[in-house]
Simulated assay, not measured.
Amino acid sequence: MRLVILGALGAGLYLATRPDEPRQGIGTDWAHDTPGPRTDTDTGQAPRGIRNNNPGNLENNGIPWQGLAESQTDSRFYQFAGPVWGIRALARTLKTYRENYGLTTAKDIISRWAPAHENDTESYARAVAGALGTDPYTYISDSPDTRLKLVKAIIKHENGIQPYPDDLIEEGITRAYT
Rank of each mutant, 00 (worst) to 15 (best):
I110F: 06
I154T: 11
P115M: 00
Y124K: 01
D135H: 11
L132D: 05
A125E: 11
E122D: 14
A106R: 06
A129T: 10
K152V: 09
S111P: 11
A125I: 02
T104F: 03
R126I: 12
K107L: 01
L148A: 05
K152L: 02
T105P: 12
G102S: 04
G133C: 07
G102F: 09
N100E: 15
K149I: 02
L150P: 12
T104P: 01
T105Y: 13
I155W: 10
Y124F: 14
R112Y: 03
P144R: 10
T134I: 03
W113L: 07
K152W: 03
P115H: 01
L150S: 11
A114Q: 08
R126V: 14
Y124C: 00
D135K: 12
R126E: 13
S123Q: 05
D145V: 03
H117D: 11
A153Q: 03
Y137I: 00
A129V: 14
Y101L: 06
K149V: 03
Y139L: 00
T138A: 09
I109D: 09
A116Q: 08
D120L: 13
D120A: 15
G130D: 10
K107V: 00
L103V: 13
Y124N: 01
A116E: 12
T138M: 00
D142S: 15
S141R: 12
G133M: 02
K156Q: 11
A127D: 15
